[in-house]
Amino acid sequence: MFRNNYDNDSVTFSPQGRIFQVEYASEAVKQGSVVVGLVSKTHAVLVALKRNAEELSSYQKKIIAIDEHLGLSLAGLASDARVLSNFMKQQSLSSRLTYGRAIPLERLVSAIGDRAQTNTQHYGKRPYGVGLLVAGVDETGPHLFEFQPSGMTQEMSACAIGARSQMARTYLERNLEKFADSSREELITHGLKALKESLAQDKELTVENCSVGVVGVRAEGKAVIEAFKLFDGQDVKQWVDLVADGTEEVAEGENMEVDA
């Protein structure tokens, strides 16, 4: 029987030029529930679908606030994400301490990118089994970054990762040109709609299973930024109701699927 001899560690290439351990790590990302991120000219938004392992358990944490100006959402191994988010928290605190400055997002994201990459080049190490969407604002405006276990990072205008995220990405691609000029509320609504696309047939968005994280360049009438805020439970009701079945389907016209 065929056995892959090139996936025992992350430092060996296969003859086809692949590193299987890294590819397997990417599979772990696809096991995680879907998270969506998108940016406008003024805001960056993360929305996530939370799963509960069993009926009796609580829902998992999908969005983590890192600092005043940024947060992340994760898909994959939550414990790996915690290691990364602790590191990011340290880095952003240290930037504030040494320079009195909110760490630029690109810098922070490439720092975790570098960390993840070293895991793919040392024998005995294991790649992170988690993908991240990092959303925040810095001096150059709002940003969204995608992070993959391979160490790849890239800036995105909208992105979705995790299980069944292809459907969400399709929604994002179709509506891409609307995001830049969207208001805060519109952006969140787009995020939830994208999330909804990825839902399994018998699932619905509820206040229990979704989280929203928002950060903006400038709070109204204030010189400071609208700090990253995580919304859970009853706090997301306002938006969940907006995208509930029957409210928007009429306007959209397409996708008239009806749940059984």
């Binding site: 400055r101 630029p104 690109e106 810098r107 490439s110 810095d138 001096e139 150059t140």
Partner: peptide
């Protein structure tokens, strides 16, 4: 360094 250049 970086695409955005200076921020200090």
């Amino acid at each position: 360094y970086g695409t955005t250049g200076h921020t200090l």
